[in-house]
Simulated assay, not measured.
Amino acid sequence: MTQTADLLVTGASGHLGKAVLTHLIETLNVPAGRIVATSRKPQDLGDWAARGVTVRKADYDDPSGLDDAFAGIRRLLLISTDALDEPGKRLRQHKAAIEAADKAGVSRIVYTSLPDAETSLVSFAPDHAGTEAAIKASGIEGHTLLRNSWYCENVLHALPHALETGKWFTASGKGGTSYITRDDLGLAAATALVSDFSGKRTLSLYGAKPWTVDEVAELARKATGKPLEVVQVPVEGLVQGMIGAGLPGPVARVFASFDAAAAAGNLAGSPADFKALTGRDPQSFEDWFAGNAVPVLTQAG
């Protein structure tokens, strides 16, 4: 019997999208024929098409094409886009997707948001707060807002360079970040997409416990044998340091806002919602670090 393709994963060519597709098919045993995967570059989804997933193009900057992309969809996972090059662009894209989903008769939307979206010091938090508000104001019957904490993988943005220089400059103070793996967030999103839950809910998805920069640095020192000093600086000092190292000012301010958010406690929380949704504990940060970060850091010299 032919499966009706009624579950849609947007941004499916990205790392999180691929994790969601993998968990839908391999962990949750969802027939591939039920799944639609969209991307601005559908040619990048050939492997999924070969597995029976329906592949469609969806470009939020071209809303006229979203009618076909969302046709027949009952439940939609809206993975937030990476459009940070222009203020307001990402929110416009998300609103276009929400309007198209509403028009297509989607009954449930799952969205990947940010902890404390309304108050977070992360510079792009207003994009997430605005998207959540647009979902709530739409005619879509049900929704699950997944407020995803920081990926474990994010520590590899700054840590290799810090180990090279022996100094890790940060403005996070004693604030902790409850890191969670991208794979665990993929499982959570896949589970939310197929869940029988029919109402409206907001879930905050954190790792097992918060980690300060000092604690992460200690893991790195033990793993590599290299000296690493954590140097606390004001947020503006961190911005100027990154600009001096060659980063464009707007990019430096985005990165510095992550530290400000950690210092304010915006990225620390309990894994209770993750466990309630998936039925399992998230992978611990130290286990992820040993299996994923250590090989990268030791190979780097």
Score class of each variant (00 low, 15 high):
195 S>Q: 07
236 E>H: 06
92 R>M: 09
211 W>A: 07
54 T>I: 12
123 S>I: 12
126 P>C: 11
7 L>Q: 00
169 F>C: 10
278 T>F: 01
295 P>C: 02
147 R>S: 03
233 V>S: 11
60 Y>S: 13
134 A>S: 09
91 L>M: 08
191 T>M: 05
151 Y>N: 06
90 R>T: 12
108 R>F: 11
14 G>C: 08
33 G>V: 03
228 L>N: 05
25 I>N: 00
98 I>E: 05
152 C>P: 06
149 S>L: 03
229 E>C: 00
102 D>P: 02
93 Q>W: 08
96 A>H: 11
118 E>A: 15
230 V>P: 06
259 D>S: 14
65 G>Q: 10
65 G>I: 02
259 D>M: 11
265 G>Q: 08
268 A>H: 09
208 A>S: 14
80 S>T: 13
234 P>Q: 10
288 W>G: 11
170 T>G: 06
77 L>S: 08
141 E>M: 06
37 A>M: 00
205 L>V: 05
38 T>R: 07
249 G>P: 12
207 G>M: 04
36 V>R: 07
28 L>K: 07
265 G>M: 08
72 G>C: 07
196 D>P: 11
72 G>R: 03
54 T>A: 14
134 A>C: 03
44 D>N: 15
166 G>H: 01
119 T>A: 03
251 V>Y: 12
95 K>F: 01
241 G>T: 04
172 S>H: 08
284 S>M: 12
147 R>Q: 14
61 D>C: 02
204 S>C: 04
188 A>Y: 04
31 P>N: 02
12 A>Y: 08
250 P>R: 05
267 L>Y: 03
36 V>G: 01
19 A>L: 11
83 A>T: 13
251 V>K: 12
283 Q>E: 15
70 F>E: 00
290 A>N: 12
136 K>Q: 14
12 A>H: 07
133 A>Q: 14
22 T>P: 07
110 V>A: 08
90 R>M: 15
166 G>V: 01
179 Y>M: 03
94 H>W: 04
151 Y>K: 08
193 L>N: 02
29 N>F: 05
102 D>S: 15
226 K>M: 09
6 D>P: 03
57 K>A: 14
156 L>I: 06
157 H>Y: 13
271 P>Q: 07
8 L>H: 03
32 A>H: 02
166 G>C: 02
185 L>Y: 00
34 R>W: 00
165 T>Y: 05
221 R>N: 05
102 D>W: 05
95 K>D: 10
207 G>W: 10
95 K>A: 10
93 Q>H: 15
242 M>D: 12
167 K>A: 13
64 S>V: 09
57 K>R: 15
32 A>L: 02
118 E>L: 13
91 L>A: 09
171 A>S: 14
12 A>L: 09
241 G>C: 08
87 P>A: 11
272 A>N: 09
12 A>I: 08
21 L>H: 10
127 D>M: 10
220 A>R: 03
247 L>W: 13
211 W>T: 02
189 A>E: 07
138 S>C: 04
225 G>I: 11
186 G>Y: 04
182 R>G: 14
117 A>F: 11
219 L>Q: 09
231 V>Q: 09
113 S>W: 07
